[in-house]
């Protein structure tokens, strides 16, 4: 038998699906996440699990309210939102704070706008900013990593590593809050052995995940490259002029959420521009804003704010920076 309903071509497909893309991004996050859990212990595990599971739950409720198929709750987009929010939180965050952040991210950030693909702002960053404003103390309570040590009889798990009580542990400053002072060494910044958010500490592992995504064609190099360059260039210039009051380019790029933002947050498909020129402008905007907020703003970290501000410009960018139509002369295209 042959089916004879008329449909337009193409009568074949490349085979990718949104779910496939989302889970590849999650896979790329796994190394940095596992390393974060290794550094910060049980409480970090709780934060991650709380975020991911509550994200799926809220997404399920949201889809029900929207009258859409609830199968999409497991399509990876909600899991990714929860996951990214968890990675950007301090590992000592109480679980209920994390869950309220996820609620804001999924329900206010996404469902209210009509679900997947309709949200103007990156949901994870929206949740992050809400938490930072509502719970400033918990959200800036940074702990020194306390990874398991190789003891005489097997692995030695520190008391703080095993603790589920967020009050325990040694508070410490993040590299960003002391950008001009005593910084962790460059190797510490790269490998991630310093205080910071759950999944943002190891620049190297995030870079690896990001390169994997670029290699698989999930993201394009334009946003990450321009974002990092636009942090590095103003930082390098200002540092060269006044090293005592401005952080160096490497410190800016390797610390805080810059790497995670460049490869995983600013590249969010829904909220970033789609045209090549637009993506470059978006990356530059994010990078410059991150540097400006970090340097002159009252918050030590500016990633979430910068990304949200640029998210707001995305529709305008997409409207004006369309790609050049093939054959149209004298148009700059990438």
């Amino acid at each position: 038998m042959v089916q004879f309903t008329p449909v337009a071509g193409p009568h074949t497909h490349g085979g990718t699906s949104t779910t496939h893309l989302m889970f590849l991004v999650i896979a790329a996050l796994v190394p940095a996440t596992v390393f974060g859990l290794y550094l910060f212990g049980i409480n970090a595990v709780i934060v991650l699990l709380a975020c991911v599971s509550s994200a799926v739950l809220f997404e399920y409720i949201g889809l029900k309210l929207l009258g859409k198929s609830t199968h999409s709750a497991l399509d990876g987009s909600a899991i990714l939102t929860g996951w990214l929010l968890a990675l950007s939180l301090p590992p000592s965050t109480p679980w209920w704070i994390a869950v309220s952040g996820v609620f804001f991210a999924i329900v206010i950030g996404k469902t209210v706008f009509g679900g997947l693909g309709q949200n103007p702002f990156n949901p994870a960053m929206l949740g992050r900013v809400m938490l930072l404003i509502c719970f400033p103390v918990e959200l800036t309570d940074w702990r020194l990593p306390n990874p398991p040590q190789q003891g005489a009889d097997g692995l030695l798990l520190g008391e703080q590593w095993l603790s589920t009580n967020a009050i325990d542990g040694v508070s410490a400053a993040t590299p960003l809050s002391q950008l001009t002072g005593a910084l962790p060494s460059l190797s510490e910044l790269t490998t991630g052995h310093h205080a910071g958010s759950l999944g943002e500490t190891s620049a190297l592992l995030i870079l690896l995940g990001g390169l994997f995504l670029i290699w698989r064609g999930i993201i394009h190099w334009r946003i990450p490259a321009t974002l990092l360059l636009s942090i590095a260039i103003p930082a390098a210039i200002s540092h060269a002029i006044a090293p005592e009051s401005f952080g160096s380019a490497s410190a800016h790029v390797l610390s805080g959420g810059a790497m995670l933002a460049a490869f995983f947050i600013a590249t969010d498909m829904v909220t970033s521009p789609t045209s090549p020129k637009g993506q470059i402008l978006f990356g530059i905007g994010c990078g410059v804003l991150i540097w400006l907020i970090r340097t002159f703003g009252s918050y030590p970290e500016g990633v979430a704010f910068a990304v949200l501000i640029m998210n707001a410009t995305t529709p305008v960018i997409d409207h004006y920076l369309k790609p050049a139509v093939f054959g149209q002369p004298n148009r700059f295209s990438l």
Binding site: T12, T18, T274, P323
Partner: peptide, 27 residues
């Protein structure tokens, strides 16, 4: 070979923009 599947909401991933040989914005 057809791989017909239910269509979902556009996530604005921009793959169509990159694939378009005419430099258009299909989505």
């Amino acid at each position: 070979e057809i791989r017909a599947e239910q269509s979902h909401d556009c996530v604005r991933c921009g793959r169509c923009v990159n694939a378009c040989p005419m430099g258009l914005m299909p989505f």
